[in-house]
Amino acid sequence: MGELLVQAWTVARKDLVLEFRTRTALISAVVFTALVLTVFNFGRDPTAVPTIDLAPTILWVTFTFAAMLALNRAFQLELENQALEGLLVSPLSRTSLYWGKLIANLVFVAVVEGVGLPLFVLFFDVPVGRVLVPLIGVIALATLGFVAVGTLFSALVIRTRFAELLLVVILLPFLVPPLIGAVQVTARLLGGRPLSEAVGYLKLLAAYDIVFVSLASFLFRFTVDE
């Protein structure tokens, strides 16, 4: 287990260094997030629909679409000079490789969300002060689940044509449960209602994380080999 995590971290750190050097994907994702939030602001009628009703949906649609950019990037960068082949002949275990990619993706998405959340608060003037900690908790809970599935699928499509497009299509149904859960919990938090009202959704999110993180860790080995 220790060895597995050390190797995973080696891979993740390499990914993050590479990402930090080029910055294209990260900057694209951040700009994309800001852009979507701005567009949403103009896409609603403030006199007809109170901001607070739409805010959770806007937040989560923005986050999930920004995450797609990260997911596409993860294995794409291993294709240059066929580094993936090098990883596969090395003693690195498939599970370590998956966790490394998962960690790097989570950091990437966390950075995007870290920029997106303050922008969201600023643009939509939602009161997050009192609920900041539980809100971050929900964001982490929902993000983990769909990034875990997305990381697996990005390895699955890497050898196919139109990989980016295919990834979006196959990932979409898998976004439904975390998205519904996250939007509902966020709505209750922002509405100042007690978390106990959303226990069902929190359980759903937690169960989704447990099932799909373990499933993806197990299934990953069947996706990368030729």
């Binding site: 699955l156 519904i180 799909f212 069947f222 996706t223």
Partner: peptide, 28 residues
């Protein structure tokens, strides 16, 4: 061979997704 393997992985994930979709929609 590759197609079958990829399809199996996606199929297994799909199978596990069914109860979650069911639950989240009905919960809603």
């Amino acid at each position: 061979g590759l197609r079958a393997r990829y399809a199996a992985v996606l199929g297994i994930c799909g199978m596990c997704l069914v109860p979650f979709i069911h639950l989240s929609v009905f919960l809603f």
